[in-house]
Design a protein around this nucleic acid. Structure first.
Lengths: 223, 223
DNA sequence: GGTCGGCGAGACGGAGCGTCTTGTCGGGCT
DNA sequence: AGCCCGACAAGACGCTCCGTCTCGCCGACC
């Protein structure tokens, strides 16, 4: 009776060693193109398959949904972009978008947030990341994967920079860096996600200033 | 040639004076129920019609998409809830969730943010507002309507309270209140929308403290 | 040179789309 | 009082896309 095989309705796990690299890349490219051209809701698995010159079954064999395809495609795109961006100065792995430490926290943060503004307005990134963010809002599993694989690694760079700032005396030591970073990152994210306001360098500069020095007057009379 | 009628393929505008109030309310209820029970993607116009005991055409006659139906249904729900919440002390229109002014800005903000935490975790509100937020991320028209009709009016309450605080000397006068409010509202919104972290009273309390007093040390040596 | 499994292609039944048709019903006008 | 008009419930229609399936085909490994 009991051999080594599983009992219940198990999927006939595909053999990944025989997987076609060419098809995979064509599917990534088709998914990213379509989501940019026709928008996420009108992007269909049939459409991706047709555009990639691939059978539908090839997509269903390796992915579970169009969100899953797009997530992997976007992760792949991000990895490529990061690789291209990273100067090949050090052989060791370049962490995603390392934040500079010139000793001037305010300037460093303003610089990085300005770079984020540029990225948010780059059409090649905007369509797929908007689509994934939208899916993640309503589908917790996709949301957590999106955050875990793409967003949180970037946020950890801020944690790192803020910890350094605490050692330099530029940030109070009783502050939780993981929360502190949200004071300037989340407002930008919300304006971009929900169209709650315009996005500009002046705006992100102000966010950094407000967050660092607080809304309350700093005179000795305060508090 | 030119009579009073329009020329090109115009929709035969329906007569709103003959509109069935009963059907409208049934459709709102069905939409809100379905989105809570089966989720936004599986909520269909056919399903709403069936659940409401209504013909599909009645929905297509008055709304353009399921997002449109849900948006109106949710606005209606919010209006009813606001009406029920507002104590009938004054006859005049109660603005949505007026923020108290006890003279202690920190305490007032913490209180209101705690109330927002409660609301975000209320299942009856969570499903529809998540669905609309998700749709709005990917559909700018829906996004702007969602923000204009639901989000921004609430944010303006913070603007009002912060302006009062500026007059009281509790907030620096060179600060833009519309941006300042985002320091504590947006982080909470992002954690809720994207599952980037847990939501609690302790968390929102910290947001208020960080925003008011800043991340940088407040000693005379700073800056 | 034979076997195995992923591959492109596309047929299949089922859902839901948005439109259109039919007959019913109720309010407003004459 | 009787009539007319348009919104209404119901559901048929052709369409697209879903997810599964069945074909041959072809390349890798034995």
């Amino acid at each position: 009776m009991a051999h080594t095989s599983a009992r219940p309705p198990q999927k006939p796990t595909p053999d990944s060693s025989r997987r076609s690299e060419k098809s995979r890349r064509a599917i990534y490219a088709a998914a990213l193109t379509l989501v940019t051209e026709v928008g996420y809701p009108k992007t269909t698995i049939e459409g991706i398959a047709a555009r990639a010159g691939v059978g539908k079954q090839t997509i269903y064999r390796w992915w579970s949904s169009k969100a899953d395809v797009l997530l992997e495609a976007f992760i792949d795109l991000s990895a490529q972009t990061a690789e291209a961006t990273a100067r090949p100065e050090v052989v060791g792995k370049q962490s995603p978008y390392e934040i500079p430490d010139t000793g001037d926290l305010e300037a460093d943060l303003k610089l990085v947030l300005r770079a984020m503004v540029d990225e948010l307005l780059d059409p090649a990134f905007e369509a797929p990341s908007r689509a994934l963010a939208a899916e993640g809002v309503v589908n917790e599993q996709v949301g957590r994967e999106f955050v875990g694989k793409l967003l949180e690694p970037q946020l950890q760079q801020y944690v790192k920079r803020l910890r350094a700032a605490q050692e330099q005396g530029a940030v109070r030591t009783d502050i939780d860096p993981r929360i502190a970073l949200e004071l300037f990152v989340s407002p930008l994210a919300q304006r971009w996600l929900q169209f709650t306001g315009p996005i500009s360098y002046e705006y992100t500069d102000k966010l950094v200033e407000y967050a660092l020095y607080g809304l309350a007057p700093r005179g000795p009379a305060a508090r």
